[in-house]
Amino acid sequence: MSDAQGLLCAIAATAVGVAVLAGWREHRRRRRVNPDAVGWVDWTLVQVIALVVAAIAGWVALKA
């Protein structure tokens, strides 16, 4: 495995981690006790972007 492939795999793994974190935060946001205590981060968008980055980085790592 080359250095570029290792870096792309690390980026993909980090993006998957961010997607899992965003999913957990979205779950907590939906189950909050105080419905007026809204956050300013759209965790669903963060999760989708992280999954797209993971898919692209993983695909490029496998192609290289």
Rank of each mutant, 00 (worst) to 15 (best):
R31L: 14
A10G: 13
L51G: 07
D3E: 15
V33F: 08
S2Q: 10
A37C: 12
V38P: 00
Q5T: 10
W24S: 14
N34Y: 09
L7H: 13
A55H: 05
D36G: 13
A22C: 06
A12Y: 06
L21I: 07
H27K: 09
A10F: 05
V53R: 04
L51M: 07
G6I: 03
W59Q: 13
L45R: 09
L21S: 12
Q5G: 04
M1C: 08
A15E: 05
A55W: 06
L62C: 11
V52N: 01
I49M: 08
N34H: 12
G6F: 02
A22K: 02
I11D: 05
A22Q: 04
D36M: 06
E26Q: 13
G6Y: 04
G58M: 04
A55F: 12
I11W: 03
L7E: 15
D3F: 01
R29F: 08
D3R: 14
R29Y: 02
P35E: 01
W24H: 12
V46K: 04
L51Y: 09
R30E: 13
V52L: 13
T14S: 10
I56S: 06
V20Y: 01
W59C: 14
A12H: 01
I56P: 04
P35H: 00
G17Q: 03
W43M: 10
T44L: 08
Q5R: 11
Q5C: 04
W43A: 03
D3C: 14
L7W: 07
H27F: 02
V16R: 11
L21A: 12
V20S: 08
A61H: 07
